[in-house]
Nucleic acid binder design. Structure first.
Ligand SMILES: [Mn+2]
Ligand SMILES: [Mn+2]
Ligand SMILES: [Zn+2]
Ligand SMILES: [Zn+2]
Lengths: 150, 150
DNA sequence: CCGATTATAAAAATAGTTATCATTATTAAT
DNA sequence: ATTAATAATGATAACTATTTTTATAATCGG
């Protein structure tokens, strides 16, 4: 009647944390689980904190920020700084992508355009830059929100 | 022997401020002048504040932030949020452009690639988005800084 | 199971920015 | 030019997102 969480799905997350060289702790398991069980979703620290609260967990805000940063450094998560002032995190995908962000409802759509990627390299090369990363975000109204404004 | 500042160049700035519907005040004249006399440069609130201090002006930090925001709303300046946490302002150009940012020395190079702009429209259209704006920033090492790291 | 090590929660600190407010400056109307 | 109405200013406090500190607690190899 122990409360060990040894479910199959959870054991995968434990392995991922271990392989990143981090100790397996409750907050880290819980936080990673939120990402893994909501694939393709983007979360702010605040959203993660609220979700944990909703699940009845007692995890401090500082811990959320710390773990998110550790997961980013470990290569489990990617951080985006869009425009809103608060960072957004998502599971690291195999492949890079950029984002369309609805300024009305906040919906995020991912895309990858090879032509844009290639031109970016060319632009940087022409300017003598060695590219380390780039960030392309298109803001606008999604199909749903567009209807509301006519 | 009055200290009226009725120089030719300054009168242009006065007109610009008036035409934005804002009162012509010393801080606003001084701040706009910094931008106009350093065309193509990008400034943070902090840089503007320091520059004013260096010129012996006594302008509060709050005023700098207020004026920058007002100039942005008036369409005189454009605000960028790059990645660093602090906003960067520049004179509003006639034409849109994107940025290459050196993560070592902070140098900013502007560029405009029609092919990228066009593809962005297509991507958004395909996703059913009505674009309001976009932000593309390429981070890396500029030609000078690249040399230092070999 | 133990103990060295590392992680945690809570609180305080920080950075960038915005709001408050009493005082001063600008502007439009005398 | 004076005046009155109104808006802007600087000092400072407040705020938001995030990081650091600290004292306690959990982890994990042996
Ligand atoms: Mn994404
Ligand atoms: Mn620019
Ligand atoms: Zn929407
Ligand atoms: Zn550089």
């Amino acid at each position: 009647m122990s409360n060990k969480t040894t479910t199959k799905d959870v054991s995968l997350e434990i392995k991922e944390i271990q392989e990143s060289g981090l100790r397996v702790t409750e907050p880290r398991k819980k936080i990673l689980h939120i990402f893994e069980s909501n694939e393709d979703q983007h979360f702010t620290a605040d959203m993660i904190y609220s979700e944990l609260k909703k699940q009845g967990e007692n995890v401090g805000f500082a811990t959320v920020y710390r773990v998110l940063t550790q997961f980013e450094e470990a290569g489990l998560l990617v951080r985006h700084n869009f425009d809103s002032g608060h960072a957004v995190f998502e599971l690291k995908k195999k492949c890079h992508h950029d984002h369309l962000v609805c300024i009305s409802c906040g919906k995020i759509i991912e895309f990858l355009d090879d032509s844009i990627e290639a031109r970016q390299c060319k632009v940087a090369k022409d300017a003598g830059f060695e590219v380390t990363s780039h960030s392309l975000t298109i803001f606008g109204y999604c199909s749903e929100c567009r209807g509301n404004t006519k």
